[in-house]
């Protein structure tokens, strides 16, 4: 049995008491358990969050193995969330895992959480996530107030910070959408989700780029634990160039 003091000894001194307390009590929604999601999940579990809620509809395919760090060839054909649950428990059994093999849709109800990671692979699925996060939480008795019934333009705004990551080829980006802010539309423009066939599945992607983007997403989370959304990439976007090793933060004007 490993003591908590030993397990977290190397990062505990780097956080404030309040930050570590927040980290240890946080419930995280992870949308997607693919390239970004498996890297993010591994880091969050090693950090020692309280609960990781994972939603992903996929089963493991051979091309996933170049970057999806939780899986091995023996897992081919198995649901990613089931394999992830097993591996993540092996890494740190202190973290509660709530996994479900399903795609997040506009009508999905997600469990209550404190923060969410967007590790999805298309802007259409991101639009659905943004709406689902505004629906009444899973298990609540609230009725008739689902955001999925509303026009996207009338949504109330995100109830929690949403850490966006995207990666393609040698490049990626990270930005955080703040609670109550303008969401994806504010960053990517009003038509960001209009191309239904834009799925990234099958597009080339470098494994180290996925790891860089996922690490930057987790850095956002750690900074949130210590200093809240003011310390995050809100209204800014980190652009990662994994070929030339040139990374840049661009301030977004509204």
């Amino acid at each position: 049995m490993i003591s908590t003091n030993d397990r977290y000894a190397r990062h505990r001194p780097l956080l404030s008491d309040q930050g570590m307390q927040r980290l240890r009590s946080t419930r995280v929604v992870l949308a997607g358990a693919g390239g970004l999601g498996s890297n993010v999940a591994m880091l969050l579990v090693r950090l020692g969050i309280a609960t990781l809620i994972i939603r992903d509809p996929g089963v493991l395919d051979a091309p996933d193995l170049n970057r999806q760090v939780l899986y091995t060839p023996a897992d081919l054909g198995r649901p990613k969330v089931e394999v992830a649950r097993q591996r993540l428990y092996d890494i740190n059994p202190d973290v509660e895992l709530e996994v479900r093999q399903e795609r997040i849709t506009r009508s999905s109800r997600l469990p209550n959480a404190d923060i969410c990671f967007d590790c999805l692979d298309s802007f259409g699925s991101r639009a659905a996530l943004e709406v689902a996060l505004q629906n009444a939480p899973e298990g609540s008795r609230a009725a008739g107030c689902d955001a999925g019934d509303q026009n996207a333009a009338t949504l109330r705004g995100l109830p929690l910070p949403l850490i966006h990551g995207g990666a393609e080829g040698w490049f990626g980006q990270v930005s955080t959408l703040a609670p109550g802010g303008g969401g994806y539309r504010a960053v990517f423009g009003p038509g960001f989700d209009e191309r239904a066939d834009e799925e990234a599945e099958g597009k080339p992607i470098m494994p180290h780029v996925v790891a860089l983007v996922a690490a930057a997403q987790v850095a956002e989370f750690v900074r949130w634990c210590d200093a809240g959304t003011d310390a995050m990439l809100v209204g800014r976007i980190l652009v990662i160039d994994g070929m030339h090793q040139h990374h840049e933060i661009i301030t977004l004007q509204s």
């Binding site: 990517f188 423009g189 038509g191 960001f192 989700d193 834009e198 661009i250 301030t251 004007q253």
Partner: peptide, 18 residues
């Protein structure tokens, strides 16, 4: 002439889509 979904053209950081 509309930016493809997911793309961005920023003028001093302001998205021209807005």
């Amino acid at each position: 002439g509309k930016t493809f979904p997911g793309g961005m053209v920023l003028l001093d950081g302001a998205n021209i889509a807005h």
